[in-house]
């Protein structure tokens, strides 16, 4: 009985220490674990490197196509700060105004972000088409603006 309890306490102790160590390591690497920077993080800390990822919502009404039909300009916002983005290439299915997006590329001196890749970010809401339309019609729609 005694040894059993000792083993139990030893296990509990080592698991606690292990968890603590993991928490400290993850805390120390916090910035490297971020998949993307938000416009506010960019404004506060500056770009983390030459090439980095920026994430936020595609601002409503900001998407414009150039005359060549391939270059797209839009603004990424986190509702506090805004970064203009330019991208040439094929956009993913879920890319649309008001939806989450992650762009990868470089920012120039004028603050224009030249994206080499655009990834659409899906939110956690799942609903059928007719329900979404009914919500929009009744003014109960809280989806796309709030991520």
């Amino acid at each position: 009985m005694k040894r059993k309890h000792r083993r139990f306490l030893a296990l509990l102790g080592s698991m606690t220490l292990l968890g603590l160590a993991a928490a400290l390591i993850l805390g120390a690497f916090e910035d490297n674990l971020l998949f993307f920077y938000t416009p506010t993080q960019l404004a506060e800390k500056g770009p983390p490197g030459a090439r980095f990822r920026l994430g936020g919502l595609v601002e409503e009404g900001s998407v414009a196509k150039d005359a060549n039909g391939l270059t797209v300009r839009f603004r990424v916002t986190d509702l506090t700060n805004v970064v203009p983005v330019v991208y040439t290439g094929v956009l993913p299915d879920l890319f649309r105004e008001g939806q989450g997006v992650v762009v990868e590329g470089e920012i120039d001196g004028a603050g224009l972000f030249a994206a080499a890749a655009v990834l659409a970010k899906h939110d956690e809401n799942y609903m059928p088409k007719d329900v979404a339309e009914a919500l929009k019609a009744s003014g109960e729609w809280r989806g796309e603006e709030a991520e």
């Binding site: 990834l119 970010k121 899906h122």
Partner: peptide, 24 residues
């Protein structure tokens, strides 16, 4: 929840109820 990820956060197990339609 802890970091910015491309993967979306939880839909079913969350404080203010599931963000998923009953039919799904």
């Amino acid at each position: 929840d802890w970091w910015n990820t491309l993967h979306q956060p939880a839909s079913v197990v969350k404080l203010d109820g599931p963000a998923i339609d009953p039919a799904m």
